[in-house]
Design a protein around this nucleic acid. Structure first.
Length: 594
RNA sequence: GCGCCCGUAGCUCAGUUGGAUAGAGCGCAUGGCUACGAACCAUGAGGUCGGGAGUUCGAAUCUCUCCGGGCGCGCCA
């Protein structure tokens, strides 16, 4: 609807180009927006105010010239110049009837855009380390990434969703050694648990499974295991180094059980964690196209090739026994190590290569959804891409702020390596997927989120999830009532009625507000996608639901007058469709009854 | 110290190429079911948009500065 008007306005402004207005005219300057106040019509443009200076005219004078240049079109029933130079447009009421018909015709596709050129977007999100179960912070990232993927696809991008599995590196070794210590405990050995290990209960089943699989084959006396290890950093005690301690413990484990058993332990531990993460995501309704293994990626030689190319370009140098990337040439604060003095490549080296690979697979835009604590990392990865000649702005990283859970007004503590933190699974089981999704999404991603467990569970009007779903269910309920009363329903006849007389049948403030909100949906999708802002859609759905509830309370739907009844049912079904489409983008269900 | 995010109604928050009288939910006050779902609706009160300066026809929005809160600054990932 907006696009049609935009074309007319642009044509009018273009017709003045060269004569009244100095060219060339930036189409971006010819902006239209929905009016806040119905007294100002349906749409308003500030183009006259923006171009007045260049034209040497007062804004209101230029506005008049633009209005005079507008092509005659039945679309516009009234134009008005108001305020400092706004041009207000009032559109033909039957346009809204036509929009209703469009919703019915397009169904699930209503609101989707198909631009002439579609960008290929690589969306990476979650990518949680396989060292423990997903926690609520990952849940927010998953909800955001999934909704953003749907949004971008609806806006016309070609979206690939990817999860980068960090199945290589030191963290996974710490995982494996943590499992081994739990296993030793089960075998009856008594030894201190390393401070830097993963101490969560979730590792116990892995230790049990290991014991069932290998018996006592990997058992060694506690004294042998801990002999001459560097002191651990015990809380309250002085001295000790938890990093040195656990590294030595890893080396000890490897030496005692042998390389083959170590690899097996490592791999089975990672696999078990990844299985759990995959299950969690699937149960949450989050889907990925690719699961990229860091280990496989490294073994393919891609990282070495990327480093070679940087070396050829003179962007690496050696200092203090390590190899450094000249990140400062690309705006970073300092140069960054890619190969440590022990010869091991850093995570950063792998990420340079991985992001380069994303581009070389043909993606125009790379989006990394990251936890807010990773923000310092973006500049250097972008620098890595720029080193290969890619534009810096092809990588963007929406940052997801922390989630704090509240139960009975009290904050629930959640340390990463604490024994009991709240997992995504526990949260989902407590409040349900839908509430989980909407609560994660209703705030801007760069706003930290207070998640009120009681509120999410409450079936009260404080809970926005139910408010929107209730609007959807209410329409379903009307249809059930219609069937129960034996009233016939013929969609094509209703459509004919609405197209012929919709403007008269669906008049009044409540109906008009509802139809106006409905017709905004495609604009909301485009805006929310462009801004990477799923929360904008949540707010919109609430507004649309409000207009439906208001209409419903003001007007009876199943009235004796056949045309009136058809028109109202037809409108309600269209709103229901848009609610369903929007909820689907957010990954929430649209129930027929509640 | 440097970098990023945040500060808007009592509370939780919307408000991005700068636009008209700054919005919503909750809470509070009052009213609405012999009714297709009251998990709803209607009306009302409630604001120095953290402070100050600047840019301009116009600033919650852009710039600078100060204050307050969060996060990050490793040859970890």
């Amino acid at each position: 609807m907006k696009d049609d008007l935009q074309r007319l306005l642009l044509a009018a402004v273009r017709s003045l180009e060269g004569s009244l207005l100095p060219g060339p005219i930036d189409p971006q300057a010819v902006a239209l927006e929905r009016t806040r106040d119905a007294q100002h019509g349906d749409f308003a443009s500030n183009v006259a105010m923006r171009l007045a200076k260049g034209a040497g005219l007062k804004p209101r004078e230029l506005a008049e010239r633009i209005v005079a240049a507008l092509p005659a079109d039945p679309l516009i029933t009234r134009t008005e110049i108001a305020g400092a130079g706004f041009i207000n447009f009032t559109l033909a009421r039957d346009l809204y009837a036509r929009e209703l018909a469009r919703v019915h015709e397009l169904g699930e596709a209503y609101g989707r855009h198909m631009p002439a050129t579609r960008r290929k977007v690589l969306l990476e999100f979650v990518s949680a380390n396989p060292t423990g179960p997903m926690h609520v912070g990952h849940g927010r990232q998953a909800a955001f990434g999934d909704a953003l993927g749907h949004l971008l696809a609806a806006a016309g991008d070609i979206v690939t969703r990817e999860y980068y599995v960090n199945d290589a590196g030191r963290q996974t070794e710490i995982l494996a050694v943590s499992v081994w210590v739990r296993y030793l405990e089960r075998c009856g050995e008594v030894l201190p648990f390393p401070q830097n290990g993963y101490r969560g209960d979730y590792l116990l089943p892995l230790a049990v499974a290991l014991q069932a699989r290998v018996g006592e084959a990997l058992r060694h006396p506690a004294a042998t295991v801990t002999m001459d290890l560097p002191a651990d950093a015990i809380p309250g005690a002085t001295g000790g180094d938890k990093e040195a301690h656990i590294d030595a413990l890893i080396a000890r484990c490897r030496a005692l059980i042998g390389a083959a058993a170590w690899q097996d332990l490592l791999r089975s531990s990672i696999d078990a964690m990844m299985d759990e993460i995959r299950d969690d995501l699937a149960a949450f309704g989050v889907r990925f196209d690719h699961w990229v293994s860091e280990r496989a990626f490294a073994e393919s030689g891609a990282i070495d090739r990327a480093l070679d190319r940087l070396r050829e370009r003179g962007l690496l140098y050696t200092k203090d026994g390590a190899e450094w990337f000249r990140a400062t040439q690309f705006g970073d604060d300092e140069d960054r190590v890619v190969v440590r003095d022990n010869g091991v490549k850093t995570y950063f080296a792998s990420d340079i290569a991985y992001h380069l690979d994303k581009r070389e697979r043909g993606h125009d835009q790379l989006i990394d959804v990251l936890g807010a604590d990773h923000h310092g990392y973006v500049t250097r990865v972008r620098g890595g891409l720029q080193a290969f000649g890619h534009p810096g702005d092809c990588l963007e990283a929406p940052l997801i702020q922390l989630v704090a859970l509240y139960r009975n007004g009290e904050k629930v503590s959640m340390g990463k390596r604490e024994a009991n933190f709240v997992t995504l699974r526990q949260l989902r089981e407590e409040v349900g997927n839908d509430a989980c999704r909407i609560f994660f999404l209703m705030r801007s991603n760069d706003q930290s989120l207070d998640f009120d467990l009681e509120l999410a569970k409450s079936k009260s009007n404080e809970n926005p999830v139910f408010y929107v779903q209730y609007a959807h269910a209410r329409v379903a309920s009307v249809m059930k009532e219609l069937a129960a009363r034996g009233i016939g329903w013929d969609p094509s006849r209703a459509q004919a009625t609405v197209l012929a007389h919709g403007a008269e049948l669906l008049c009044g403030a409540h109906a008009e507000a509802m139809l106006s909100a409905l017709s905004r949906y495609p604009e909301v999708i485009r805006h929310a996608a462009a801004q990477r802002a799923p929360h904008a859609l949540v707010h919109y759905l609430r507004e649309l639901a409000t207009t439906l509830h208001a209409f419903y309370n003001a007007e009876r739907v199943l009235v004796p007058d056949e045309a009136q009844r058809e028109a109202r049912v037809y409108a309600l079904l269209a709103v229901q469709q848009v609610l369903r489409n929007g909820l689907a983008v957010l990954g929430a269900s649209a129930p027929e009854s509640m």
